[in-house]
Amino acid sequence: MINIQSGIPGFDQLTVSELTEGGIPEKSTTLIYGPPKTGKSIFCNQFTYNGLSNQEPCLYVSTDQGYKQVQRDMTDFQWLIQNYIQNQTIYFIDGISHLSGGKFENKNNIVSSSVSNPADLMVKVGIGTRNVYKTSNHFRSILDSLNTLFAFNPDQMVIKILKAYLRRITEAGGTGLIAYTEGITDPKTENELKSLFNNTIRLDGQHIHIKSDHPDFDEVQYFESTYTITDNGIVVNENNFKNIN
């Protein structure tokens, strides 16, 4: 199994075990979740930027913020993506600007959809997946986040959307990272949600808990540590590593 760099200092070292070299398993799916304002989106953006810097294209589906805001947020951490937008290494699906009623100019690799139109969103995911796949069959895919999808659609429909999304990107060779804010749905749906992923990462503002349940391994692996959000993004503190296997 090949792991890819996360781009989060300390994360790849934390996830080293007898079975893996650390990082995020390629072509796997990861749910990053936790309470609000604990760094989930920062993690997603850091992971995206690391991939782009290593010539790995990215399919980015943003349902919480418009693409301009995402770009600004990334600029705050000096993760400059304008060049990647121009050379079309990133394919951006903006699922929220349409709802605010603002004018949106679709470009080749920046397209508008709407969380209230999930079928359209998934059609655009299909087009986007084909688009990044043409550039490379190793790509990263971000969905930030499921919150707005849950707000606009019935829970079970969101689960179906997510299943379709995960199937589509993994079939094309993508590595998926999907964000979700804890408590948005009921506990039963939340458990169902977690069960759809190979890996889960929980951020609570201080601690990072990682659970990796990759089909290549017989056993589930657990890692945990503390983390800090710095001006350069998330840093996992190496002094507090715990491998609970």
Partner: peptide
């Protein structure tokens, strides 16, 4: 082609309203 693709997608995810509109 596009509409049928969207129709299949809406059918797959259970978006009945989109399915009917399509």
């Amino acid at each position: 082609e596009q509409l049928e693709n969207a129709y299949e997608m809406s059918n797959g995810i259970g978006d009945d309203s989109a399915k009917s509109t399509l």
